[in-house]
Design a protein around this nucleic acid. Structure first.
Lengths: 341, 341
DNA sequence: CTGAAAGCGCTTACAG
DNA sequence: CTGAAAGCGCTTACAG
């Protein structure tokens, strides 16, 4: 019989490092934690010992002693398919992961349903298992997440639904202004029947973009009746476009609250024989890979998704270090002109 | 000045539970860990105390004492955009998260580049920070991940590239047989010029599906010259389709190694005026949401992605518990007939 | 079935 | 600048 034993060598401890460096454990601890209160010679000796033994501090022991877990929860209150299906999230998570990468923290993935926080997650988040949390998108109705910030350092992606309800930290763009800009572009093109495929009505980003669209049309004295809500997915974009076309076959433009939905909308427009932007001009939102993945390159409102993720992580890191941090951080958007409008 | 102090109440300890229940710490520990060696009365008393104090065991202390981290690394050796862009991964991660959810483990997300393991990740994985790892997809060239299983319990999504190199645990489908089945469907349709948009040549799944396509054509005495490699992304599917069409404008079928690539291929086929499946029949692979998201519903080879994720997690959980586990687990595939072939 | 005691590997005042 | 000592909150043989 072959030896199935995994010879998992037991890792060296602080104690051993101290012994081989000929100093006390306190001193090793100091150099490991970058204290300046160490003489150059000792520093060198300890560093050498660490190197030699290939020492890595034990996370659990450290956490127990200093009451920090060095873990951050990445809470995703979205359906898995939506989370993974939207390039917007990819960019945000990329930014978060990138910013965390250069810290000592690790990211604990917490997939959650949009509304019901599981008992396990509640316990986990409140049970001292993480030092902080990043909540990647906002829905109303999730009171637990909304008030999580009272108990734990939390930064949100997107503004809270009720600004007065709690003092959240968050990063966002001015969704209303951005949507107004996108809609104005359509207006400047001379379009008169400008529809919107809006986001979910229970999400601030969804509501605000709708407001921006409305504002632009109002200023221009154009009708604001052509509105259908999607859920940010491609299929909902297609479904919404069909409904819009059925309601007004003569519409000549559509502002879509996400590029992914715009992709779905575009395929329906072509299916129905509309030329883009000739018959119908379309402006998307996000400037995600979805905007350039299809047959027709989308004109869209760019938001710096990856940078937003980075900023979210940076804010949380500052909070965790006790450094002063702005409560909200609003990033710039801009029009990106391509083929569809 | 308002009190900005976060009154973060300090959580109750085992000690306190013991005190209020009137027993020793050992006993509380036993009931917390589900030992049967406890009298009913004591069990009731302790349970009540836990309930009353809202006690949650301290993870760090526990880890330190029993040398388990209760954490599992979810290693994703893919570009972020690809990882998030492919519904296949969404399903796998969903399955993993679901299986882990009912355990006491948490999932540490480790986004990695396909080839270069970062120093931080290496340290993390090897530094005793996790009890095990799930590596979600396989590339050749990544020697570090390939041999990670020698040091840590690891289960892979997809077979290892060099079966002899190490005794990995993995779950997979028979990609070659599955691709052969898909290609045979095209052959039975009477198609004669059957191309393939293959996966990356450095991934077992890519290679095996190509082999299956080849095998089917060989058996049928059909030419195997129409092959182009994509990278499983939609845009690569589109690009590959263009190249294929340029090489043989008369091709009448294409087997595509993933639904996402098939989506890209379909849009190019329509762009070039080909009817589907009239002029060109297409068969995809995965049966992911991508297969039914587009204008034309894809006929495809179904693989049980979510179940594969669940199985991966279950295998790792068994390994961690020291329970006997099969080294490999091959799941069933099947044809799903829809519009495209 | 239950408890006293040692130990897990760190950090952190406190002296010096 | 450095060390001895206590303590973080658990688990786990070992007795009884």
């Amino acid at each position: 019989m072959t030896t199935e034993q995994q010879t998992r060598r037991i890792p060296p401890t602080l104690e051993e490092v101290a012994a081989t460096a000929g100093v006390s454990r306190s001193t090793v601890s100091r150099v490991v934690n970058g204290s300046t209160q160490v003489s150059p010679e000792v520093l060198a000796a300890v560093t050498a010992a660490i190197e030699q033994l290939n020492y890595v501090p034990n996370r659990a022991a450290r956490s127990l002693a200093n009451r920090q877990t060095m873990a951050i929860a990445l809470v995703v209150p979205e359906e898995t398919t939506r989370f993974f299906g939207d390039p917007y999230f990819a960019a945000v998570v990329h930014g978060i992961a990138h910013a965390i990468e250069s810290s000592d923290y690790v990211l604990n993935l917490q997939l959650a349903s949009p509304f019901a926080p599981s008992a396990k997650m509640t316990k986990y988040l409140l049970g001292g298992n993480v030092d902080g949390a990043i909540v990647i998108s906002h829905h109303s109705g999730d009171h637990f997440l909304a008030t999580l910030g009272d108990t734990l350092p939390v930064v949100f992606g997107g503004r809270p639904l009720h600004p007065d309800e709690h003092n959240s930290y968050f990063v966002d763009v001015d969704n209303a202004a951005a949507a107004e800009m996108g809609t104005n572009h359509l207006i400047e093109l001379g379009r008169k029947r400008i529809a919107i495929i809006a986001g979910p009505a229970d999400m601030p980003a969804g509501m605000d973009r709708t407001d921006g669209w409305r504002r632009a049309l109002q200023s221009a004295g154009l009708p604001q009746n052509l509105i259908v809500h999607g859920d940010f997915s491609m299929v909902s974009g297609a479904r919404s476009m069909r409904e819009l076309l059925d309601r007004d076959p003569e519409l000549d433009a559509v502002f879509v609250a996400s590029d992914l939905m715009a992709t779905g909308a575009v395929s329906v427009l072509r299916e129905r024989g509309r030329s883009i932007p000739g018959d119908v001009a379309v402006v998307g939102f996000d400037d995600s890979p979805a905007a350039i993945g299809g047959d027709i390159q989308l004109t869209t409102v760019h938001q710096p998704s990856m940078e937003m993720g980075e900023k979210m992580a940076e804010m949380l890191l500052r909070l965790l270090r006790g450094e002063p941090t702005e409560r909200e951080w609003i990033m710039q958007t801009r029009m990106v002109m391509r083929e569809s409008a």
